[in-house]
Amino acid sequence: MDVFMKGLSKAKEGVVAAAEKTKQGVAEAAGKTKEGVLYVGSKTKEGVVHGVATVAEKTKEQVTNVGGAVVTGVTAVAQKTVEGAGSIAAATGFVKKDQLGKNEEGAPQEGILEDMPVDPDNEAYEMPSEEGYQDYEPEA
């Protein structure tokens, strides 16, 4: 019985440690998101679009440190934060509304985080759909 109880105690310690790591990862992701939003706020009209992409990228980098179902929630929060940063930029006159959601080359930025393969159960990952990809044929 002692062996059984000791095993359960060790398992509990492992769960607590994993929860603490997840909590730490979420806190880091939130900190990076805040950094990115402050970065966007300090940019001029020309830099705002690039700044919004930076927020998304920093958040995406930190999301990889967070495991399990938390990833889905962090990704949703990050996307809403990026959308909010863009709205703030438009409201303050840093950028025109028609410039939001495009990178410096004018290509749409939507789907940055949505296409990231995420499995809350950590069982399997699927690649994003290939609808947006084109076949590449090298020139002879």
Results as ranks from 00 to 15, higher is better:
V49W: 11
G106T: 10
T59G: 07
Y125F: 11
G41F: 11
G106L: 11
E137L: 09
L38F: 15
N65H: 08
K10H: 15
F94W: 10
V3T: 00
E57M: 11
V55S: 01
S129G: 09
V15R: 00
E139F: 09
L8N: 00
V48G: 01
N122D: 13
L8W: 15
Q99Y: 09
A107M: 04
P117G: 06
D115F: 06
A56H: 11
A140H: 05
G111E: 13
V66G: 02
A124T: 14
G101K: 11
D135G: 05
E123W: 01
K23V: 09
V55D: 01
T59W: 15
E46V: 15
G93T: 01
I88E: 05
A29K: 06
A29H: 05
V77L: 09
A29I: 13
N122P: 09
D121P: 14
G7K: 01
K97Y: 14
G84V: 05
N122W: 02
V15F: 04
A27W: 11
G31E: 03
G14K: 11
A124V: 14
K60V: 14
G68S: 07
K96M: 15
V118R: 02
A56N: 07
K10V: 10
V66K: 06
Q109N: 06
E104L: 10
S87D: 08
H50L: 15
S87W: 01
M5V: 11
G51N: 09
K102R: 01
E57Y: 02
E83M: 14
M5S: 04
G73D: 06
V16F: 11
V66C: 07
K97S: 10
T92L: 10
S42V: 06
P117A: 04
G73V: 12
G93R: 08
A85M: 13
K12R: 02
S129D: 04
V55P: 01
T81G: 07
D119F: 09
L100E: 12
T75S: 05
A89R: 13
A89E: 04
E35V: 10
A85E: 06
D135P: 10
E46D: 07
P138A: 07
Q62M: 10
V82C: 13
G36W: 12
N103M: 10
V16M: 11
T72P: 00
V118W: 12
E105T: 12
M127S: 12
E61K: 09
T81S: 03
V3Q: 05
A78M: 15
G73F: 14
E57H: 05
A56R: 10
E61A: 09
V95N: 15
V70L: 12
K12W: 10
G67M: 01
G132R: 05
V63K: 00
K32M: 03
T64F: 03
Y133K: 04
A56S: 07
S87C: 04
N65K: 11
G84D: 10
P108M: 08
M127E: 13
K32L: 14
P117T: 12
Q109R: 02
V48E: 01
T59H: 02
M5D: 00
K43I: 09
E35P: 03
E57S: 02
K60R: 12
V40L: 15
V118D: 13
E57W: 06
D119A: 03
K6E: 03
E123I: 15
T75N: 08
G106K: 11
A89Y: 14
D121K: 11
D121W: 03
G106R: 01
K12E: 00
A76Y: 12
T64P: 07
A27L: 12
A91C: 05
G31T: 10
D119L: 03
G41R: 14
L8H: 00
P138M: 14
A140S: 13
E139W: 13
